[in-house]
C-alpha cells in the first residue's frame, strides 16, 4: 500500500495537531505522486498537486477522470470502497495522512466533506444534524446551541432556519439541505473542506447561494471543489486543476494553475480543447 515510509510524524489526532488560526499563506494539502487503485483497476496515476491554504482549488475534468477519487483520497474516504488502495503521499500540514499511525477517523474530523447529493440525517432535526458530528464523536461539555448557531451562520443558513431548528432536516429545500450539510461539516471545525460536486443536484438559484458561500468560506479555510461545471470553476476558484483519463481510464493531472490563467491561456492543448467544449 505504502511506498516510502517517511520519518514518522505524530499521528494526526485532533488534539495533537490542533488547527492554527493564523496559517495564512501556508500549504493546506500537498498531494505527492499519488496513485490509486480500485482492486485491479488503476484510477489515478502519479498526481502531484498543491492545495494552498485559504484558497479555492477547483478540480475539473470529464466524467470518470478520477476527480472524485482524488478528493476522496484527501480524507481517506476512498477506503470505504472495498479493495481501494493508494501509493504516494497526501500531506496535511506536513503530515502524511496515509502514515500507518494516522487514524482515518481522526483525519476526517480535520478534513470535512460535502457530497454530491444533500444527505442530512433523516432521523434528525435541523439542529441535531448540525451538531451530529460533535455529538457522535463524544465531545461533551460544549455549548451546542451556540455552536449550532455559529455553524449555521457560517453556512449562511441561520436566518432561514432559526425558527425551525426542531423540524426535520429533510424537510428543507434541496439547496437549504446542502447548506445544512455544509454547516454540519463546519461544526466540527475542519482545517480543510472538500466538496464533491456540491451543486450538481441543485437548481441555479441554490447553486448561486452555495457559490456565494464558498467565496465567503475561502477566507477561513482551504476548499477543494470537484465540479463538472467549468463556469462554476471559473466563478468560485482561485486555482484550477484539470484532470483527464486516457485510453486505460487512468486519471491523470494534465495541468494546474491560476484559474484566470487556465481559462484564458491554458498551457496544454487538451485543457484548451476541454474548456472550449471540444469534448467532455
Amino acid at each position: 500500500m505504502q511506498t516510502a515510509a517517511q520519518p514518522q510524524v505524530a499521528p494526526v489526532a485532533a488534539p495533537s495537531v490542533s488547527p492554527s488560526p493564523d496559517s495564512g499563506g501556508r500549504l493546506g494539502i500537498g498531494v505527492r505522486h499519488l496513485s490509486a487503485w480500485y482492486g485491479p483497476h488503476q484510477a489515478l496515476r502519479d498526481i502531484t498537486l498543491d492545495i494552498p491554504d485559504r484558497q479555492v482549488t477547483a478540480i475539473i475534468g470529464p466524467s470518470g477522470c478520477g476527480k472524485s477519487t482524488l478528493i476522496r483520497c484527501l480524507n481517506r474516504m476512498h477506503e470505504v470502497t472495498p479493495g481501494a488502495r493508494t501509493q504516494g503521499q497526501v500531506l496535511l500540514e506536513g503530515h502524511d495522512v496515509f502514515a500507518p499511525s494516522v487514524d482515518p477517523v481522526a483525519l476526517r474530523r480535520l478534513v470535512g466533506m460535502v457530497f454530491q447529493r444533500p444527505n442530512p440525517f433523516p432521523t434528525m432535526s435541523v439542529f441535531d444534524n448540525v451538531v451530529a458530528g460533535l455529538r457522535l464523536v463524544a465531545q461533551r461539555n460544549r455549548n451546542l446551541d451556540e455552536l449550532a448557531e455559529r455553524s449555521l451562520r457560517r453556512a449562511a443558513l441561520w436566518d432561514e432556519v432559526r425558527d425551525k431548528l426542531r423540524s426535520a432536516g429533510t424537510a428543507l429545500s434541496g439547496g437549504q439541505q446542502q447548506r445544512l450539510c455544509i454547516a454540519r461539516a463546519l461544526a466540527v471545525d475542519p482545517k480543510v473542506l472538500l466538496m464533491d460536486e456540491p451543486c450538481s443536484a441543485l437548481d441555479p438559484i441554490a447553486t448561486l447561494r452555495i457559490e456565494e458561500l464558498i467565496r465567503v468560506l475561502r477566507e477561513e479555510i482551504p476548499i477543494v471543489i470537484v465540479t463538472h461545471n467549468m463556469q462554476q470553476a471559473a466563478r468560485v476558484s482561485d486555482r484550477t486543476a484539470f484532470m483527464l483519463a486516457g485510453e486505460e481510464r487512468v486519471g491523470e493531472l494534465i495541468e494546474v494553475g491560476d484559474t484566470a490563467e487556465m481559462f484564458t491561456n491554458p498551457s496544454d492543448k487538451r485543457t484548451e480543447d476541454y474548456i472550449t467544449g471540444r469534448f467532455g
Binding site: 485532533a14 480524507n75 474516504m77 470505504v80 477517523v105 481522526a106 483525519l107 476526517r108 474530523r109 480535520l110 470535512g112 466533506m113 457530497f115 447529493r117 444527505n119 442530512p120 440525517f121 433523516p122 432521523t123 451530529a132 458530528g133 457522535l136 464523536v137 450539510c181 454540519r184 461539516a185 466540527v188
Partner: peptide
C-alpha cells in the same frame, strides 16, 4: 442510502457509532 454512512464517516464518526447512531435509527 450509502450516502448517509459516508456523511457520518466523513464527519469523523467511527464506523460502529455510524451504524448504531445513524444507520440503525434510520
Amino acid at each position: 442510502p450509502g450516502e448517509l454512512r459516508e456523511a457520518s464517516l466523513a464527519l469523523g464518526v467511527p464506523r460502529w457509532r455510524t451504524i448504531l447512531r445513524i444507520v440503525v435509527p434510520t
